[in-house]
Design a binder for these strands. Structure first.
Lengths: 240, 240
DNA sequence: TCAATAGTGTCTTTTAGACATTATATG
DNA sequence: CATATAATGTCTAAAAGACACTATTGA
């Protein structure tokens, strides 16, 4: 049968954020031979004495300048997604890739380093076309749908929507995250009731945000609570 | 930093079943050096031209005589769990292990082959002790809790409880699966209503099962429906 | 004043859960 | 008959969802 003789282990990171009302993923130009002119999820080989989680954190730091830490005003979340190991997923050699998924607020990226690979954000709609308007390198077109579905599901039963906003935020800010990720309008009144009645999800700061240019009642500000799971869950409405 | 020079990719399979009213996992004696007298999840190296899924199916076939197919009377479910890659998880060499999770009805095992590794089932309670009554080889004590939690969660929002029973079954049989996996008693009346009112979860066959030795009304028989997700979900009661 | 956004109240429908009641078997 | 297990009925409480209404700002 022949156990694997040559083998490489890589980590690829789907970095998700919400910008301009849409869920978007970070792409970079792969530096690998034979993949010029295409885009890919940021990734790289796992180091000799490095854990998989450490490798994912390093990829995020190198490509996006993001440190995965829990800060006072926001958190960046990182979790393992799944592993892709088809023998032909990389044309050059057998590479088993452990995919990770990260959630971060928009504009948390450091400016690109000199000499760093070009990068951009792509909306998940843009990436969704089967065969796709944007065809990614390697098998990254297979990773993206798994990442998107995971993000959508996580918003149902965890407070991770909070990883897409910075403290403090309004209920409207949080609703905009849900609407962007799920691609659906939510009833503002019912959304507010659910969020504020779910224990330890958000806590009021007492302060209010100034209204927008067109006026409107000032919105109360909240910061993230301590909950690690939502009881009850925020269920996705059936797709219309 | 040094990308991985030596590297092996393995697959380990947590095979879950319900026997004697408890959730149990299949263990084997590892044939690796230095792990004599211990138990481990069945596993092995990934072949040179083999996908990860194929490797998991092969492990199941070799260690349990189980073919992962959808048959008329039952299904065996196999899914990827997560990947464990700490540099020191195997004392001998760096091995990245992709863990899989399988669901199968009890007594679906073929008899052990001549010369096959010794095997047994262990209840998850037996494996749960922190530091554990049964300490498993490698880092398999880290895989087991992830597997158990995944099984418990999957019963909430998928019809995979059906993978633990063979067609045809009674509502009582199905309830026994939930009670074993969740370790909680469920109200028979409310359970029946939820199961039968969830679309395409189970379908009546029209036949009935003979009652047990002590008598009782004969139970109606069902077979599994076509649903791939449960709407609404079967939520776990809060732990008492 | 009006338009815009934030927030509350209320009603209906659905679902969860407790628990009483009826049905059909064995001994 | 009693006992055991299956299945149904009923009531209450919680949650989801639709939508009217009030509150507070800018122009």
């Amino acid at each position: 049968m022949g156990a694997l003789t040559t083998c490489a282990v890589a980590v690829d990171v789907a970095l998700a954020t919400v910008r301009d009302g849409e869920l978007q993923l970070l792409l970079v130009e792969p530096d690998a031979e034979g993949y010029g002119g295409t885009w890919a999820l940021p990734g790289g080989r796992v180091g000799d004495d490095e854990t998989l989680d450490d490798a994912a954190r390093r990829i995020l730091r190198e490509h996006a300048g993001i440190d995965v830490t829990t800060r006072r005003d926001h958190l960046t979340h990182l979790e393992q997604l799944r592993t892709y190991g088809d023998p032909r997923r990389d044309a050059r050699a057998r590479v088993v890739s452990v995919a990770y998924l990260a959630f971060t607020p928009t504009d948390d990226l450091a400016p690109p380093r000199a000499g760093a690979a070009p990068r951009r954000f792509a909306t998940v709609d843009e990436l969704a076309g089967a065969g796709g308007e944007t065809a990614l390198a390697f098998d990254h077109d297979r990773i993206v749908p798994d990442a998107v579905e995971r993000v959508r599901a996580k918003l149902e039963y965890t407070p991770l929507a909070l990883a897409f906003v910075a403290d403090p935020f309004t209920i409207g800010d949080l609703r905009a995250v849900y609407e962007a990720v799920w691609g659906q309008r939510l009833d503002p009144a019912n959304f507010r009731r659910k969020v504020t009645s779910t224990r330890d999800f958000v806590v009021p700061t007492g302060a209010v945000a100034p209204p927008g240019p067109g006026g409107g009642r000032p919105a109360r500000l909240f910061r993230r609570g301590t909950a690690r799971a939502l009881h009850p869950a925020m269920l996705r409405p059936d797709p219309d």
